[in-house]
Design a protein around this nucleic acid. Sequence first.
DNA 1: CCATCATCCTGCCGGC
DNA 2: TGCCGGCAGGATGATG
Length: 273
Amino acid sequence: MPELPEVQTVVTDLYQTIVGQTFQSIKSDWERAVLPNITSFAQLKNKKVIDVVRRGKFIVIVFQKDLFVVIHLRMSGRIIVSEDKQSQFPYGHHRIEFANTLLHFCDSRKFGRVWISDSDNYEQFTGIYKLGIEPFDEQFTYEYFEKLIQKKKGVVKKILLDQSLIAGIGNIYADEACFYCGIRPDSKVENLDQAQKKNLLHSIIKALKQGIENRGTSITNFHDAYGKKGTNQELLYVYGRKGLPCLKCKTSIEKIRLVGRGTAYCPSCQIEY
DNA sequence: CCATCATCCTGCCGGC
DNA sequence: TGCCGGCAGGATGATG
């Protein structure tokens, strides 16, 4: 499922393929996922893409005249760019036509969303305004992290998945980060000492960075904008490895349910605090 | 206010 | 082989 590294991969691809492209039209067979409605895209006619950026797990396409198209892939969304005007892909529900290329938004579970808005409203309209800090923001220091979580209570995994604290972490990278720092994801955040919290922060960054370097985790069918898989799934220690031997100590990886999510960890390498 | 649960959707997998 | 229940988990809104 697309998390920060997968979304960053798509954004990088989109930047290379659609900046400078001129919007022509959008077509959709699942209009309830297009907000506020499909006709509002008419104002984009003949406007050029000037930038593509990521915010949390959101893709933000910046057009001329302060118009923004925002996409969230949610669980199963996928973006494929093709110059072939006749191209079709499985579960292709929305297609954005540019003068010289085609952006397919495919989504088997139809949880994904696409919004259009202007610069004054897009953060509010899409929910981007609620997001916490970007993990790669230079302001995201240990001091910031400490302040962010010092009054929080509950399990570590809940903190990691809270988009209003840190934007972009999802289930896979949360579990992997916990493995890196040897902290069980069901540890109470209030029980962690300074060294453990520093280790956790370092591990979050390491997991996300590695995901980006490997162009995403394709364990549940993630593909980049060219339709290619990432390779980070080959480097996972716990996610999707229930019952398999830990790559460090051979102990069988366990899986529990935590804050409503499947959660994998090594009972030997990771400690519950 | 917080934690848990249901909802949105469909594909896929294991069990019978 | 085929049917069915359960699981997958990002985000939001309802419920306890």
